[in-house]
Amino acid sequence: MTKTLEISNISKSFLSNYRRKNVLNKVSFSVNYGEIVAILGPNGCGKTTLLNIIAGILKPDDGSVIFNNEEIIHPSWQRTMIFQELNLFPWKTSLENIVFGLRAKGLPKKEAIFLAKSQLKLLGIENFSNYYPNQLSVGTKQKVAIARALALEPDILLLDEPFSSLDMQSRELFQEDLINIAKQRKQTMLIVTHSIDEALFMSDRIIILNGSPAKVNAVINLAASPNRTPRYRNTQQFSKLKNEIWEILRSKD
């Protein structure tokens, strides 16, 4: 397997109220092509900070991020991100938000519109094409943000707690939708989450981030990528893994 993303010894601290707060401490891991990796960590442990560094909108104090054999310096659509707060442009409709991404990537306008429309259809939200974000439900906004990022076909898709604002049922349905699309396209993904269930269901590998400052506490390989049908959530294998992860989280607290 070849690596697409390699993170080595990333450290990051923030200055707040004249105090230096260490958030990340020598975090290292890598992601292979086609792999879906989950980063699991409690609230406020630095998950968003880590993703921002990988996306290139934040500089680490120390360490390096190598992406496709090059040190990253700028943000790029090849490492595009679905933000925790989605960050849809409120002055653009669903369609325009997606078109913007495609044009930013460099596509001509006509092609961008065509692709954006098919992306809206893929996610079943074509009826909301001409709605502004303010007019959409949380779930639909979520889907527009996913569509905007997926449409770019990035080398790696970064997702920051993509489903955290959804209710239980919608969340599971969304997870299933996304995983199906991702598997079909062999889309490499790095998903940040604080939900063990989400990490287990979505990923091939779980990286547990914990402590203050946060570091990688454990890596769990979910050997032979599981069969992600809704039923998988109710299997013994699933609950056994869930317990194991709980044990790790408890013992490292």
């Binding site: 659509w77 960050n87 442009f89 913007f100 930013a104």
Partner: peptide, 25 residues
């Protein structure tokens, strides 16, 4: 700043950011 950052992660250059993010905002 989040909108400018978002535009950057989508690959936008400074011209597109100015015209379609800064101006409308």
């Amino acid at each position: 700043k989040k909108f400018v950052d978002t535009a950057k992660t989508l690959g936008a250059d400074s011209k597109l950011i100015f015209l379609e993010v800064v101006i409308p905002a």
